[in-house]
């Protein structure tokens, strides 16, 4: 799932040109996940797994998503990420439905995770407790 490095020895990148090529390659791989417009494509879930998140139960939530999405036959990628900064609302997760803007949910316990799967992921209904993005990124600046 989150481990793309399954013991495969990576090829060395030997020049700046190689690095640019690599970047294009990994970007398109991520883009495929980002912007896929066919409805069957993947749902992406990122779980904030810094110390603060883990201390509040992010590991259990990540497991919950991995197991439950599998059981409920939903095609999804669940990955870990670092701190999103919303430490007051841990565990936090970001859910991106195909072709849509990502949505961040805070205070996710297994009950809420279940609601997110049933309502948001399956039906596109928002669930209470969305955390609006309140910062700018360097891409726009």
């Amino acid at each position: 799932m989150s481990k793309i490095f399954g013991g495969i020895k990576m090829a060395k990148i030997k020049s700046l040109a190689d690095l640019k090529k690599k970047q294009d390659e990994v970007r398109s791989k991520l883009n495929l996940r980002d912007k896929a417009d066919n409805p069957e494509s993947l749902v992406q879930i990122k779980v904030a797994m810094a110390t603060c998140g883990i201390a509040s139960g992010a590991k259990e939530i990540m497991e919950f998503f991995v197991n439950e999405l599998g059981k409920r036959n939903i095609d999804a990628v669940v990955t870990q990420t670092g701190c999103m900064g919303y430490c007051y609302a841990e565990p936090t997760i970001e859910v991106q439905l195909p072709g849509q803007e990502p949505v961040v949910y805070g205070y996710v316990d297994s009950k809420k995770a279940d609601k997110i799967i049933e309502l948001y992921i399956k039906k596109g209904e928002l669930v209470d407790g969305i955390i609006p993005q309140n910062y700018e990124t360097i891409d726009n600046k």
Binding site: S2, K3, I4, F5, L19, K22, Q23, V26, R27, K29, L30, K46, A48, A50, T79, Q80, T81, G82, C83, M84, G85, E94
Partner: peptide, 14 residues
Amino acid sequence: CGFIDPENIDEAIA
């Protein structure tokens, strides 16, 4: 932080 998987260098490269 909060975007990439910190354990996956490819996401960082992207």
